[in-house]
Design a protein around this nucleic acid. Structure first.
Lengths: 212, 212, 212, 212
DNA sequence: TGATAACCGAGACGGTACGTCCTGTCTTGAG
DNA sequence: CTCAAGACAGGACGTACCGTCTCGGTTATCA
């Protein structure tokens, strides 16, 4: 059942891999994803084209891995810098405040022009190419999602979220609209919007029956 | 001070335009958007390439117009078939039921494999190309959004939605998560999910204080 | 029975054709045939690669045509310069002298370093590729051969060559050894050698019976 | 002052060498010389590419050696089969008949489709690459030429060829036209042609003065 | 009798050129 | 003027080989 033509990854050149990541990221930053070519990446990385085609199935796959590598390096750096490893959504007891904090951070990140082009490009590629999409979701989205789920479960245990709520769906109620606005650029993405979403989601749209 | 190179649209060939729409849609359906080329569209439409370049700025623009045209034709057909023109979200008095109805329809539409490829392609293009994205949002998303806003305002007047709620944000609370799941394929898109969203959005995640 | 994909030669760019000829000849002169690439020819000619692939089946075909064109232009120039058009082997009545004259000229031409590289390259290509070889023979060799045949026929009429001799074979008796030496570089190619060939061929190797 | 990178030929793998010869010859036979690659030879021979690059400077050199080896093996086989080793042109006393015999054999050999492709390929390579050409001439052509020279010298001693004839040039008068026809495919190569060449060469083209 | 060189198979590497495809522009001839 | 047709310059595609290199794994002398 082994792949007949799989290259021998033990002999892979680490130097080339890193150079390809760097070249891909810089070219996408400079010219945009559409104008970035495999040929251009190879040239800037000082690498033969075949070395890219040998290890990646597509331009999108290269960029995705480069992105993931960037994240991993940042994580390692953070860990080395003293943090206790796993980042978590804070739990101050005030769920609304905690969620607003992280959603505002997400909003800021999405509005950061540095990351905008490559992130949009990857998202677009993932929308069309299921393979890329799955990897994108698994590697970039899922870890983030898990944080929300943990915080929401804690909230359920603390009694501030109903027990019959599915944390996953609850998370999507918060992040879905933000991603939607960012992707489709329908309306500006602001801190106020993030706050509104938290309030609406936690308390619902229907009026509360008045206490007696 | 008119555009020096603007073609004279009064002399435009209607037949060619329709042939281009048909060719574009069929080719995207057969081979996917990425493998569809302007040359291929021109060939299948029996049209010179210049005729496409003269009237559209990009492949995405062609497909977008083809899509809009499809919608318009469907609308005209529906109108001719007897309906009173403007479609609306029903108002039975039961907001939750009404919303579930339309959200389930949206889910079905998004799951329809016929429309999947071109819709994803357009969405992806819109994510990367702001021009396309704006037109996409204005022509395809906005009319749909307006229906929700109207229905939610009616609900506010009826007192089943709080007055301080922004209908636009409320709408995004419902459709955002659905679009998000569809685009990123994180989890399957079902009627049950649509129902949950309505319930969560209307009632919130936090427990209601007990009536006295 | 028409070719399905034949390009329309009436719309062919004369300028590009000439530029391709010039580029091909100069590159072969500079770097040799083997190191001359279609890509290089296209680049120097300021032409798209497809323009070469559209009109020629191979690098050898390009060079062959370029060579033929060179000959035609030289011929036109000569004609314009006053000559009476068709060049002929002179007929002074002394066959041996006349043949030595042209064979010495041929030797000089083959020893000319300017023409050596491209001519060898074309000959080599023709040896391997029958199509090229046939065109090479027809366009470059045949006209030359016809001159010999005419001169030898005149010699037969004048009674200095036996009537039962095939002029074609006779010609090959003269040129074959020269071409052979040139191609295979077995021994140097000199005027003396050319003279010997004429003497040997005209008088034979066997001793003449003594006159009475 | 020895070559710093010369491999140690005493440790050379005989098995690999033979496998490379066999692979080279079979691939040239199957696909032609141009489509035969060093990589392909190595793969079929079950040999690393470096083993070829270590011992041969070029593809042509590999094929040339393979060819020579073929000839040597044939010679050894012939010797073992009883012959007295050195082959010679027969000397029956009738020079014309003897020459016709060997020239007809040469014609048959050149017309043998089995040897055609590789022989043409080698000849073509030798025409362009002087190094290969020299080796080709020395190893394959020279031994053959020596046979002619010996037979012609014997003819001179017997008085059937004039003493002032250069045997080498005389030989070229016979073989040159045949090789020429074969290489350039101008006209078919037949026994009759070989016979004519012998007659023309021996007796010359000019009429003999009538005996008194 | 190990050390220590070589050759060896294998195949990744930086490159070059291939021949194909498509882009967006330009030109031609018909209507 | 628009249109169908398609040639053009340009350039990226993905593939095939080039010739070099590095990697274990056998041999096959020498210490």
């Amino acid at each position: 059942m082994a792949e007949s033509k799989a290259p021998d990854s033990t002999r892979r050149s680490e130097k080339s891999r890193r150079a390809i990541y760097a070249a891909a990221l810089s070219l996408v930053g400079e010219n945009g994803y559409a104008k970035t070519t495999i040929e251009g990446i190879a040239a800037r990385a000082g690498v033969g084209k075949q070395t890219i085609y040998r290890w990646w199935p597509s331009k999108a796959a290269v960029l995705l891995e480069a992105f993931l590598d960037l994240g991993e390096q940042a994580a390692e750096a953070a860990e080395a810098a003293g943090a206790d490893g796993a980042y978590e959504i804070p739990d101050t007891g005030d769920l609304a405040a905690d969620l607003k904090l992280v959603l505002r951070a997400t909003v800021d990140e999405l509005n950061d022009p540095t990351f905008e082009a490559p992130t949009r490009a990857l998202a677009a590629e993932g929308i069309v190419d299921a393979k890329i999409g799955a990897e994108y979701a698994e590697k970039l989205l899922e870890p983030q999602a898990a944080l929300y789920v943990r915080r929401l479960r804690a909230a359920q245990e603390a009694g501030v979220v109903r027990d019959d709520i599915d944390p996953r769906t609850a998370m999507e109620l918060l992040t879905g609209p933000i991603v939607h606005r960012w992707l489709l650029r329908t309306l500006p993405l602001t801190h106020a919007y993030a706050d509104s979403l938290v309030d609406y989601a936690l308390n619902g749209l229907a009026p509360r029956p008045p206490r007696h």
